[in-house]
Computed example of a mutant assay.
Amino acid sequence: MDGSLTDPRSLARAASALRCLPLRRAFYERVAVEAISSGGLCDHPERGRYWFRPLTPQRAEDHLIWLIRLGVLRREVDGQGLTERVRLTPMGRQLLGEWPGELPRAGLGERLLHGLRRRRPRL
């Protein structure tokens, strides 16, 4: 057993998403210790340290939903059910452990393929 929590294709797809999305390592480290919503992310005083380019709350929510679908994030649950806040999953922690510093940025080809996969998930 190699210690991975899921199959290699899912890990590769999620790793590619982490490199392609405009979210910095600081964002993933924050959701590893506390839940945050897309609105909270965009309103945070230090919001610039969480992404490479500015995000609107709707665009941030779109990225969070994609990361949930890939298994990197999950919605937090409270006494009333699911909330709008997200947290890092064990798979997300595993992926972050692969890079000691800032997440490496994807090249143009990988970003194009990621965009196609995001719009056509079966690719």
Rank of each mutant, 00 (worst) to 15 (best):
G40K: 00
L41K: 02
L41H: 03
C42H: 01
C42F: 02
C42G: 06
C42M: 06
D43G: 04
D43E: 15
H44F: 03
P45G: 08
P45F: 10
E46K: 07
E46R: 08
E46V: 13
G48A: 13
R49P: 02
Y50E: 08
W51N: 07
F52P: 00
F52H: 13
F52V: 01
F52I: 01
F52W: 15
F52S: 06
F52M: 05
F52G: 03
R53A: 06
R53F: 06
P54E: 13
P54H: 08
P54T: 02
P54D: 13
P54K: 05
P54W: 11
L55F: 07
L55D: 12
T56A: 05
T56N: 02
P57C: 02
Q58M: 12
R59P: 00
R59Q: 08
R59F: 05
R59H: 08
A60R: 01
A60P: 07
A60Q: 04
A60T: 10
E61K: 06
E61L: 14
E61V: 02
D62R: 07
D62F: 05
D62M: 08
D62P: 00
H63Q: 11
H63C: 04
H63I: 09
H63P: 00
L64T: 03
L64K: 04
I65D: 15
W66P: 01
W66N: 12
W66C: 09
L67N: 00
R69S: 13
R69Q: 13
R69M: 12
R69N: 13
L70P: 00
L70W: 11
L70C: 05
G71R: 11
G71V: 14
G71P: 12
V72K: 05
V72N: 03
L73A: 08
L73R: 04
L73P: 10
L73T: 09
E76H: 09
E76M: 12
E76N: 08
V77N: 10
V77H: 13
V77D: 09
D78P: 08
G79T: 08
Q80D: 15
G81C: 12
L82R: 14
L82E: 15
T83K: 02
T83W: 03
T83I: 06
R85W: 00
V86C: 14
V86D: 13
V86H: 12
R87Q: 07
R87T: 00
L88S: 02
L88C: 01
L88G: 02
T89F: 07
T89N: 10
M91Y: 10
M91A: 12
M91G: 01
M91P: 01
G92T: 01
R93G: 13
R93V: 07
Q94R: 11
Q94D: 08
Q94W: 15
L95N: 11
L95E: 13
L95G: 03
L95K: 08
L96A: 09
L96P: 06
L96M: 14
L96F: 10
G97D: 15
E98G: 15
E98F: 15
W99R: 10
P100Q: 11
P100K: 10
G101D: 14
E102C: 01
E102I: 00
E102K: 00
L103Y: 10
L103R: 05
L103C: 04
